[in-house]
Amino acid sequence: MGFKLLSKLLVYLTASIMAIASPLAFSVDSSGEYPTVSEIPVGEVRLYQIADGVWSHIATQSFDGAVYPSNGLIVRDGDELLLIDTAWGAKNTAALLAEIEKQIGLPVTRAVSTHFHDDRVGGVDVLRAAGVATYASPSTRRLAEVEGNEIPTHSLEGLSSSGDAVRFGPVELFYPGAAHSTDNLIVYVPSASVLYGGCAIYELSRTSAGNVADADLAEWPTSIERIQQHYPEAQFVIPGHGLPGGLDLLKHTTNVVKAHTNRSVVE
């Protein structure tokens, strides 16, 4: 069995187990497998329904001669939608809004960016022009300005110390501490036991640490421990890039980060 097929099978099995364990909360999309990078042309966006009122959005972007996937989250909030992270750029984010209108038909009224990198804030200006209120932590807003990236308009308070959590509509926002970046936030959907790890969490097929220019490698494993301790009931975990899975993604990420750190020390 090929690795790609095995990865998709694991996603399907995880979703099936969740649907059985929580039949009222989960209505997993039966329309197909989780979209992969090879299936999404740059400039297009796919939506994948995880649970009743919960979707991931998947886009792709060219970077350094390669094409990478990027995940975000959409959560229903009454007759409105909360968006977590842009679709990595203005063109993708405009396509995301169009796809949401086509498939869901509810307005996106608020959006949260989970850290300051372009795959999370690139497209904020498109959201703002569409009347979406954009939010991020003060740290993310400051770092985005320093980096020359787009800056969300509103500040999220109460997320300055490791372990801080605040309720934001249908989700809980959690600051686990520094990891992929010093400002990275985690998003949890309690009604569906869905954990969105953003770039602080890796997919299972990833074996290298990737972009760690703004990471705190020493603190990252401790931050992941905080996530595990705060959300032990999480059933569906979405990484910032690639295929979702279960809580095993947290341990896998820790292993990859520690291996990278150990290699760096040896070198």
Rank of each mutant, 00 (worst) to 15 (best):
A179D: 00
D85E: 08
Q235I: 01
P170F: 13
K258Q: 05
S181H: 01
W55F: 13
Y202P: 06
V11D: 09
P35W: 11
W55R: 02
A15N: 02
P23I: 15
T36R: 07
S208D: 12
V108E: 01
T254N: 13
T14V: 13
K4R: 06
A218T: 09
A98Y: 15
I50R: 11
L250Q: 03
G105I: 02
V257N: 12
H230W: 08
N71M: 06
L96E: 02
R110L: 04
S223V: 10
E203C: 02
L243I: 15
G105Q: 11
G105T: 15
L81S: 11
D118K: 07
N149D: 12
A165E: 10
A66Y: 11
C199H: 00
P35H: 14
Y175L: 11
G197H: 00
T14S: 12
H241G: 01
R206P: 03
L247M: 04
T253S: 13
G53I: 05
L217Y: 15
K258F: 09
S161Q: 13
K102R: 09
T253I: 01
L5R: 13
T134F: 05
Y231T: 06
T93F: 00
L96W: 01
I227L: 05
L9D: 12
V237G: 02
G148Y: 03
A144E: 02
E80L: 14
L143H: 09
T114C: 02
V171C: 15
V45N: 15
A87Q: 12
V212C: 06
R142W: 14
D164F: 04
A87V: 02
G198M: 00
G89A: 12
I100L: 04
P170H: 13
G169C: 02
H57P: 01
A209G: 10
L47E: 01
V121W: 01
F236E: 12
V11Q: 12
T253W: 01
V45R: 13
R76W: 12
G123S: 02
T254Q: 07
H241N: 01
V121G: 02
V237H: 03
G72A: 04
H252K: 14
K4G: 03
S223E: 01
V126Q: 15
K8V: 12
R263K: 15
S191E: 05
P239M: 01
C199Y: 02
I20L: 09
A90F: 10
P152V: 10
I58W: 05
